[in-house]
């Protein structure tokens, strides 16, 4: 749903906090049924990835913010995972309506999709709850820190931003603004770094276009 003044006023940080504080740490039954509809059931790989990335995130968070903040990192990640499952379910519902299909095997078995979605959810939680208990040393985890920690290309993170905003109705205006700033930063610089997948895509689309039919005559 597009951003509206009413939505902005209605949605407060407390609303999302309440939702996340009461949400489950595990995929919902709805989400499980989407997994079961897949040609290749992605459940085990999804749970394994959440666990693996969790270990990396908590370790890097403690390294960056301070060993005294290990518990905070763990809490941030836990809420991020809850948001990740919530948004995934919402995305699948709207994709199901849009495409009239129920088998999302290829998408739900795509590591980049899940890593991008999880990174967005954790980024929103950190931006909302604050990046550390104390105000001073949380800056080290500002965006794009999460991309380095999850070894995720900025361009791949960029792909989920709009769908994430569409799928999560309880995002506040500030949270949406935060994702938008991340988006701009990616478009303006991060997506153009040398190892970006963007260059291969440009090359592929050039090859698909083929040579120009009638190159313009060179002007004298």
């Amino acid at each position: 749903p597009p951003q509206t003044p009413v939505r902005a006023v209605m949605n407060t940080i407390q609303q999302l906090m309440m939702i996340l504080n009461t949400a489950s740490d595990q995929p919902s039954e709805n989400l499980i049924s989407y997994f079961n509809n897949c040609t290749v059931n992605p459940k085990e790989s999804i749970l394994k990835r959440v666990e693996t990335i969790g270990c990396i995130f908590k370790e890097k968070f403690a390294e960056t913010v301070g060993q005294g903040c290990i518990e905070i990192g763990s809490q941030r990640y836990k809420l991020g995972v809850r948001l990740y499952y919530r948004v995934m379910e919402s995305m699948l519902k709207s994709e199901e309506e849009r495409l009239s299909i129920q088998n999302f095997s290829k998408l739900l078995n795509d590591n980049t999709f899940h890593t991008s979605l999880l990174a967005s959810a954790v980024e929103i939680v950190m931006a909302t709850y604050g990046r550390s208990g104390s105000q001073n040393n949380g800056a080290g985890t500002d965006f794009p820190w999460i991309l380095n920690v999850l070894d995720l290309k900025a361009f791949d993170f960029y792909k989920v931003i709009e769908s994430f905003i569409k799928a999560e109705a309880s995002l506040t205006r500030e949270m949406i603004k935060h994702l938008e700033r991340c988006e701009h930063r990616i478009m303006e610089s991060l997506a153009w770094q040398s190892d970006s997948p963007l260059f291969d895509l440009i090359k592929q689309s050039k090859e698909r276009e083929g040579p120009a039919d009638h190159p313009e005559p060179t002007s004298t």
Binding site: P2, S94, E95, L99, D110, F113, V160, K177
Partner: peptide, 21 residues
């Protein structure tokens, strides 16, 4: 500040964006 600009076209969603269509 202006609202978020939704730029994806009708036929575009995460399935297409991640080449999973």
């Amino acid at each position: 500040a202006p609202d978020y600009h939704f730029g994806l076209e009708d036929g575009e969603g995460v399935r297409e964006l991640f080449d999973c269509d």
